[in-house]
C-alpha cells in the first residue's frame, strides 16, 4: 500500500470508504471489511484504522453491530455525497480557480471543456 500526498492515514482510509459508497460498491446494509482486515491491507496499526471507522460511525455513514462488524447506514450515500460536495467546494475549487486565473482560462473556456468532456463520454 502506498500513501499519497500529505493526508493522515486514517483520512485516507475514510476517503477509500467514501469512494466505495459513492461508486455503490458498498450499499446500504452491506457488511464492510473489519478493522483488522483494513489495518493489515493498509499495513497500519489497528488503532489508526479504528479512527476511520469511529469517525464515519459518528457521521452516520456506518453502524456497528457489536461482535458482528461494521455495516453501511441507510442514508450513507446522501451523507457521503454532501460531505464530498463540501470538500470539493472548500478544498478543490479554490485551486481550480487559482489555476484558471493564472492560465487565463475563462468560465467560457471551462464550459466548452466541460461540454466536450461530457459529450465524449
Amino acid at each position: 500500500m502506498n500513501f499519497n500526498e500529505n493526508r493522515p492515514i486514517y483520512l485516507q482510509i475514510i476517503d477509500f470508504f467514501c469512494d466505495q459508497i459513492m461508486t455503490k460498491e458498498w450499499q446500504t446494509g452491506d457488511r464492510i471489511p473489519s478493522v483488522r482486515e483494513i489495518a493489515v491491507q493498509m499495513e497500519v496499526n489497528p488503532n489508526t484504522a479504528i479512527r476511520a471507522f469511529h469517525d464515519l460511525q459518528e457521521e452516520g455513514v456506518l453502524y456497528n453491530q457489536r461482535g458482528v462488524g461494521y455495516f453501511v447506514e441507510e442514508k450513507a450515500f446522501e451523507i457521503v455525497k454532501e460531505k464530498k460536495r463540501r470538500e470539493f467546494i472548500n478544498n478543490k475549487l479554490p485551486h481550480i480557480f487559482k489555476d484558471m486565473d493564472q492560465l487565463d482560462f475563462t468560465i467560457d473556456d471551462f464550459k466548452i471543456a466541460y461540454q466536450k468532456n461530457s459529450s465524449g463520454q
Partner: peptide
C-alpha cells in the same frame, strides 16, 4: 518489510 507490517497489523496487541 511489507509482510512484517502486515503481520504486526494483524497481531492482537
Amino acid at each position: 518489510k511489507s509482510q512484517f507490517r502486515k503481520i504486526m497489523a494483524a497481531a492482537d496487541l
